[in-house]
Each structure stands twice: as C-alpha cells, then as structure tokens.
C-alpha cells in the first residue's frame, strides 16, 4: 500500500482515529471473554457492546447470533472473538466499499453534496477539491449554501487554498439558480469536476427537501444525466437517525454514495454497518481529521478491524 509511505500512513491515521473507540470495544471483549464459555449471557453482553458502538439493536443482534452460531457453548479466546467480529463486519461492509471514481468523459462530472446541518459537507468538498487538484484536474466549486451565514466565505477560502473557481451568489439567493449557472460555467470552462455544496437540512423538513428537488430539476435542464453523483455526508457521532437520513435523502435525491466524517473522535460510526446492511449504498470515503489530507478512501477490512480491535494484537 503506497499510502503507508506518506508522513503518516492512512491506515495508521484511521487506526489512530478508531483506536479510542475500538479500544473500548476490544477492552470490553477481553472483559467478557477471558476464561468464559460462550453462553446466552455472553452473547447478550456482546450484543450490548455492539449497540454501544451505534450498530443498532437489530444489526447487533444479527452479528452476535452469527458469531454464536458455530461457537456456542465453547470456550473462546478474546482474540478469536475479535477476529470473528471483524470478519462479520467485513462481510457486511465489503460490498459497499467503493472509492469515488471521477468519470473523465463527463466534463464536468457533476457532484451534488447533501446532508444535515453540521455534518461536514463544506469541509468534505474542500478535501475532495484538494485531492483532484493535486491529481491535475480542473475543479469548480459551487457555494450552494445560501442560507447559513458565512458558508459562502468558508467555501471561498477552500477555493483559494486549492486553487479552484468558486461560483457564488448572494446570501439568501436561489440555490437552484446558482447550481444552474455553476453547471453552465463548469461546462464552458471544460472543468473535470463540479462539486456543488448545499445548505444543511434536516431530512424531515419537507420544504427544505423540496428545495433540494428543485436544485435537481434545474440541473437536469442543462445536463439530463446530472448530477452524476450525489454524495450524502454523515457525521460519525450520529446515532440511529443516520438510517433515516440515508432513507429520506436517498428517496429525494437518489444518493449514489456516502461519506462519513469525524471518525477521528471516539464515535465509532457503527451505524455505517447498519446502513450497509439495510441500504447497500457505496461508502466512498471517511473523514479522519480537519486538514486537507484527512479524507481517506473507505476500506471495509481496515474499518472492521479497527472497529473490532482485531488489528491491535
């Protein structure tokens, strides 16, 4: 893996980020399983550990049951259970781990970025812009958050940092109109990638979701296939509500992939497992810090191992 040669390999970054969370799980596992038989009590405790990593009741129960299936009533070592847990989680996550692929034939590849307030949409766009600029692509950013104070300025600063054009309108302006002119401009400039930021919105606010629909309609007038990708940004600290976010955003704007941010805290992002289980949407990247380089492709095995603490031993 070439990334490991960087100042700090991405796996170790992820591990650093997830260690704090997984150490709680693996510590928990050691507590449960040292010299113990895998009986109903133990299964329940394992289930609870998974629940406290935000995997949700149903997913936690299913994974625990799977682990118990072949090992019931046997003496089992903590390492073994960690490996089994990592295996189960990998099995669920592997099909959804798919990096974001820029479609070079599009000119521009239009990406709409959506999510609830404060999930990290603008920061994620900044990080994406940095990566594709570094790869020599022409990237245009559209400051579609016309609601929050200084959101436009925030994206403009990212534009300056990364050397991308930023299309803006006035605060309170029409986001759909802005998206339209951004697509127009990006086409005219022959850009490779257009990243459209949107205002954060809670998925149960029907008026704000209707606004999102309008943005989609307007973009399609210029580019019937656009947006070619729609990324939903999820905050790792979010609990089971993330399921509702995926469901409703998915329904409204046909989400094509997920990005999970803030995995550098103690939040375990276990809800991603529940989401993968239920929706099977591709997970493109994870955010493990605030700097430009902290957006990493999502690798199921590493995530699972970090989550279950299997890599620690």
């Amino acid at each position: 893996m070439s990334e490991t040669k960087e100042k700090k390999g991405w796996f170790s970054r992820l591990r650093d980020g997830l260690k704090r969370s997984s150490s709680a799980i693996s510590g928990g596992i050691t507590d449960i399983f040292t010299k113990r038989k895998l009986d109903d009590d133990v299964i329940e405790e394992l289930e609870e550990l998974l629940i406290s990593a935000d995997l949700g009741v149903a997913t936690a129960a299913r994974i625990s049951a799977n682990i118990a299936k072949t090992r019931y009533d046997k003496e089992i070592a903590p390492e073994e259970i960690r490996a089994a847990l990592a295996e189960e989680v990998t099995a669920i996550l592997d099909p959804v781990a798919a990096p974001f692929v820029l479609d070079e034939s599009r000119k521009p590849h239009v990406v709409l970025v959506v999510g609830v307030n404060g999930s990290g949409k603008t920061t994620t766009i900044g990080k994406f812009a940095k990566q594709y600029r570094a790869a020599g692509k022409k990237v245009v950013l559209a400051a579609g958050d016309t609601f929050r104070a200084a959101a436009v300025e925030q994206l403009q600063i990212w534009g300056q940092r990364t050397g991308c054009d930023v299309i803006t309108t006035k605060v309170g302006g029409d986001a759909a109109g802005l998206a339209f002119s951004a697509v127009e401009k990006a086409k005219a400039d022959g850009a490779d990638l257009l990243l459209i930021d949107t205002a954060g919105r809670l998925q149960n606010k029907s008026d704000l979701m209707a606004e999102l629909e309008k943005i989609l309609r307007v973009i399609k007038k210029l580019e019937p296939d656009a947006p070619h990708s729609c990324l939903l940004v999820l905050d790792a600290t979010t609990g089971q509500n993330a399921l509702s976010q995926v469901e409703i955003f998915g329904k409204i704007c046909n989400v094509t992939g997920l990005v999970m941010t803030k995995l550098d805290g103690t939040a375990r992002g276990g809800v991603l497992v529940a989401i993968a289980d239920k929706f099977g949407l591709p997970v493109h990247a994870i955010g493990v810090g605030e700097s430009e380089d902290d957006l990493q492709p999502f690798a199921a095995n590493d995530f699972a191992r970090a989550l279950s603490g299997a890599g620690d031993t």
Partner: peptide
C-alpha cells in the same frame, strides 16, 4: 446535537 448516538455520553 440531539441526533448524536451512544457517543454523546463520552
């Protein structure tokens, strides 16, 4: 954030 999961307590 009231949408926070189990981590809220940590």
């Amino acid at each position: 954030d009231s949408l926070t999961g189990q981590d809220a307590v940590n």
